[in-house]
Write a protein that binds this DNA or RNA. Structure first.
Length: 507
RNA sequence: GGCGACGUAGCCAAGUGGUAAGGCGGAGCUCUGCAAAAGCUCUAUUCCCCAGUUCGAUCCUGGGCGUCGCCUCCA
């Protein structure tokens, strides 16, 4: 398959260093605040990339780190008067729960920086020994000018980077571009022992140490958001490659486009987001995944909440098509040629092989869904259903993983009643939040046909529905329609079924 | 200021040197007494603007304009 490589700024064929084995390292979260939808976009993309590689028959080793120690989580902890571990566990736990809700596959390894202090210290020692780092009063710093290729990933030269770079008060760096590998602990800060003084790793070094420890360098794919290119990934390269015989550290550097909200990057520092978990409480997780799939992974994407509603409808129709295909009894007509869905499959795979064109792949699935009738008529229903299932699995929205409720939605309570001597199943929301004034609103619309004396809102709705059913039974359609309109006027949507009727509250 | 990305219908969005996928929404129709669901049909003479290259450009080149990102912590 072909993938865009930030390192070379071109689309290249992905050829694993080990045949049939792709080693991936994706920069995970620094749990110092709530995760947001922008994080979800990134992790969802790498999840689909991983699923597709597996689908193509490769073994994938997927490492995603947790930077569980950094300045920000310490600051949050101090502000709240709790331990930094508590802060990390809280936000990381919430993040993991959200990932599970979106059916993001578990990483094969999910290392925490604090679990790799020993290799981190060893790597820093080696960098010092080779002249790439030095010990200052406040920290151990990386000597950027010692690494001639610095800036290559971000396509920047040192002069460009010097602009705006400065040494903050209290920093003992020798050059404004230098960055900390190890920060000595101030009183009250967490610390781990090290030859140069107790402290904590700086941001960046954990990824260099852990990717080497768990995957070995060089490896195949290093991923993250576009905003990690500089300085994070540039610094990882500067730390790792001087110690390697055969750079580059990673063959492919893959970066996902950022999510914007109101035309601005969604980010922790701007605070222009709501927690991912809150969004997942309001929307279907698979619909959010589907929404991201419909946009190229490298493009900036402006988030609008109403787009999720559109994606929810679209994905629901996809499932409907799948259900229709799957529920079609096997054809007894064996004359049909096998492989009616072969062309769809080829287009689907070709789209994903072309730099993960998920939007193109999704459109193939819509094409297939639109042709469901023809496929059924051609006796290819089960073949099409099987393909759709497989294709949706690659995208992480397989019917097995379905989180979208089947229609009719939220029918949680049902009662068996009797209308005109026939059974009548009445169903509606379990605990409807009906406005208290509903009875007063409904009464003038339905009386005297229906008596609502002393009714609670829910009972009023049900009485009206039953009255309408009775009217239908005596073929008094005019009255039945009046009652439907009356219910609609107070926000009740009524759907007739073979067995009876289902109602719901239209917000 | 430097570097980079993006700019396609009401909204979202794919894509190609040869004449615009798909989704949402909207409109009409079919089918069900009505409604819902489902199905069918329609919905960009045109791809931010201007020049250039070309037989031909939305796609290539140059110049604008606009939006965003990175250059400082952020997927």
């Amino acid at each position: 398959m072909r993938l865009y490589n930030t390192r070379t700024r071109s689309v290249e064929e992905l050829e694993p260093l080990d045949r049939q084995q792709v080693r991936m390292y994706v920069c995970g979260l620094t749990p110092s605040a709530d995760a947001h939808l922008g994080h979800a976009r990134s992790f969802l993309f790498f999840d689909v990339l991983r699923r597709f590689l597996i689908f193509r028959g490769m073994r994938v080793t997927f490492v995603q780190n947790v930077t569980d120690i950094d300045d920000r989580s310490i600051a949050t902890a101090q502000a709240e008067g709790v331990s930094w571990r508590e802060v990390v566990n809280r936000y990381f736990g919430s993040f993991k729960a959200s990932m599970r809700r979106m059916h993001v596959l578990e990483p094969d390894v999910e290392p925490r920086a604090t679990g790799y202090i020993t290799p981190i210290v060893a790597m820093i020692e080696e960098l010092i020994r080779r002249g790439f780092a030095y010990v200052a009063p406040d920290a151990v710093y990386y000597r950027v000018k010692a690494f001639p290729r610095y800036g290559a990933l971000a396509h920047r030269n040192l002069e460009e980077l010097m602009i705006g770079a400065r040494i903050e008060p209290g920093e003992g760096k020798q050059d404004p571009l230098d960055f900390a590998l190890w920060k000595f602990a101030k009183p009250g800060e967490p610390e781990w022992p090290a030859p140069w003084g107790a402290g904590r790793p700086g941001w960046h070094i954990e990824c260099s140490a852990m990717s080497d420890a768990l995957l070995g360098v060089p490896f195949d794919v290093h991923g993250g958001g576009l905003d990690l290119i500089f300085p994070h990934h540039e610094n990882e390269i500067a730390q790792s490659e001087p110690l390697m015989e055969h750079p580059p550290m990673a063959n492919f550097w893959v970066h996902g486009g950022l999510l914007e909200f109101d035309g601005r990057k969604m980010s922790k520092s701007l605070g222009n987001f709501e927690p991912l978990s809150a969004l997942l409480d309001r929307h279907d997780a698979q619909a959010i995944r589907w929404l991201f799939l419909m946009t190229g992974y490298r493009k900036p994407m402006n988030f609008r909440e109403d787009a999720i509603a559109g994606a929810t409808v679209a994905l629901g129709r996809m499932y409907d098509a799948y259900d229709a295909l799957r529920e079609t009894p096997p054809s007894d007509d064996d004359s049909r040629p096998a492989g009616s869905v072969k062309a769809y499959r080829e287009r689907f795979v070709a789209a994903l092989e072309d730099d993960m064109n998920t939007a193109g792949a999704v459109s193939v699935l819509f094409d297939l869904a639109g042709s469901a009738r023809d496929l059924i008529a051609a006796g290819a229903a089960s073949e099409a259903a099987a393909f759709l299932h497989e294709a949706m699995s690659v995208l992480g929205v397989s019917p097995n993983e379905r989180t979208l409720p089947r229609r009719p939605p939220t029918v949680l309570s049902a009662r068996s009643l009797d209308v005109a001597g026939k059974p009548f199943a009445l169903s509606g929301p379990q605990d409807p939040e009906l406005p208290g004034e509903l009875v007063a609103q409904l009464r003038p619309l339905v009386e005297p046909a229906v008596s609502l004396n002393g009714c609670a809102p829910r009972e009023a709705v049900e009485r009206t529905i039953l009255a309408r059913a009775a009217a239908k039974a005596r073929r008094d359609f005019a009255s039945a329609d009046d009652l439907r309109r009356a219910l609609a006027a107070v926000g009740i949507t009524l759907v007739d079924t073979k067995e009876g009727a289902t109602w719901s509250l239209s917000h």
